[in-house]
Structures are given as structure tokens and as C-alpha cells.
Amino acid sequence: MEITEINENAALVVIDVQKGFDDEGFWGRRDNPEAEGNIAALIERWQETGRPVVFVRHDSPREGSPLQAGTVGNEFKDVVEERRGKGAGPELLVTKSVNSAFYGEPDLDAWLKGARVGQIVIVGIQTNMCNETTARMGGNLGYDVVFPIDAMHTFDLAGPFGWTRSAEELTRATAVSLHGGRFARVVTTEDVLKGAGAR
């Protein structure tokens, strides 16, 4: 098995792990109930090893959105909030109102380049939306993007022409597009934890 090499200063980018995504009536059925546990394990490994962690929050400007800025749904889930500020390494909060974490405040690309970070590990919600968009942009910007597919989740979705896809199908499509298209290396949480062992 190929070892996933994790740089000593690789940044963990934790995207939109917010309470509003627990609103099943709004979003529908999700996949991967293990996502939050895997996200927690990765945050803890990054904090133990002094690597940088970026927490990204989606501040929706839309009235009635479960992620609307200023509402309870906008807050980070406990799995993230309880771990913020606990690490030995640098930490950044990025807020955004679009899909890509690279279009937020402060400028994520500038912060990463300032810290000479060349590798990012993306986790969070949703697999095929903000995570995938951030991964594609990261790849385009020249980062080595690592995408532990089991440290994220998404929801069933309806599209055009009456087409629908389950959350699991969307997750596989994202994995194939990113990995096959060389935007990112799609791996597992276990792969990343092994590659990011204690320094």
C-alpha cells in the first residue's frame, strides 16, 4: 500500500462543520455517519503535531438558510468548537459566503503562502460542494491536495431532467473526478493519520 506522505507543515482545512447541516428536513438524507469522528481524529493529530489548522465557516447571506449568519445553525458543531484553540500550531478562521474556501476572509491562499504551506488536507461538509470546489481551486493554485473521503459527508441531491443521485453516488463521483482528474489525492482518514504521525 502506498503511504500518504503528509508534510510537517501541511494545513488541515476543516470546512463548514456547522450545526445547520444537522437540519435533515432542509438537506435530506446524508451519508457517512463516521465523518465527525474522523474529522475529530484529524484535528487532534494536527494539534498534537503542531501543524496548522484552518477552520472555515459558511456565513450564508440568504434569509432562512440553516447556515444564515447570526443564527444557531451558523455555529460550528461541538466536535469542532470543543477543539478550536487547543493546538500547539497556528490556527486560522476563514469566513465565506460561496463554495470555495479560497474566496473568503482572510485570504486563505495568501495565509498559506505566507506560512510556506504547500500541502492541504481537506475535510468537512459537503463532499461534492464546498470540499470539492476548494480542492479543485487548491489544485489549480498549485497545492498538493489530500482528500480523505471518509472525513466528510454530503446529502442526496436532485438535479436537472428528473435526475437524482444518492449521497453515496455523489461521494464516489467526487472521488473519481478529483483523483482521476489529478486535482487531489483521494485517500482515507487512516492513510492520513499514518502519514501524519507524531513529529
Rank of each mutant, 00 (worst) to 15 (best):
V53N: 08
S166K: 03
G89V: 09
G25D: 09
V117Y: 06
Y143D: 12
E34W: 05
S177F: 05
P148L: 13
T188F: 13
I39C: 10
R51T: 10
P52N: 11
G28V: 08
L92Q: 12
G87Y: 00
D16N: 07
V56C: 04
M152T: 10
D23R: 00
G118Y: 09
E44N: 09
T189P: 03
T171W: 02
D191E: 15
K96G: 04
A173Q: 09
A135F: 07
Q68E: 15
T189H: 00
D191S: 13
N140R: 13
F55Y: 14
E63N: 12
V176E: 11
Q119G: 10
V146A: 01
T133Q: 03
T189I: 08
A88F: 10
G159M: 15
V79E: 15
K77M: 15
L112S: 03
A40M: 08
P61D: 08
T95Q: 14
E2L: 06
S177D: 11
F147D: 02
F21Q: 04
G89P: 05
F147N: 03
K194Y: 15
P148D: 13
E5R: 14
T127C: 09
T127F: 04
R165S: 13
N9H: 13
F55N: 02
M137H: 12
A151H: 03
E91V: 11
V146K: 10
R172P: 00
R165C: 08
Y103F: 11
A151Q: 00
V176G: 00
N131T: 06
R62C: 02
F183N: 07
L67Q: 03
A110N: 01
I149T: 04
V79T: 04
D16Q: 06
D191H: 12
V14P: 00
F55C: 08
V186Q: 02
I149Y: 04
A69M: 11
T134N: 07
F102G: 01
G195Q: 10
A198T: 14
T174V: 11
I39P: 04
T71I: 07
M152K: 02
E132Y: 00
G85M: 11
N131Q: 08
V56S: 02
D144W: 00
H179C: 10
G195P: 07
G180A: 12
A151T: 02
K194I: 15
E132G: 01
T174A: 14
A11E: 11
I39V: 15
L42T: 06
D59E: 09
E168N: 03
I3N: 13
V14F: 07
E8W: 14
L170M: 12
N128M: 08
G20F: 07
N131L: 13
K19S: 09
R199E: 15
W163S: 13
R84G: 01
S166R: 08
T127A: 02
S60C: 10
Y103T: 04
I43A: 05
Q47Y: 10
L93M: 15
D23W: 01
P52D: 02
E91T: 11
G87W: 01
D109Y: 00
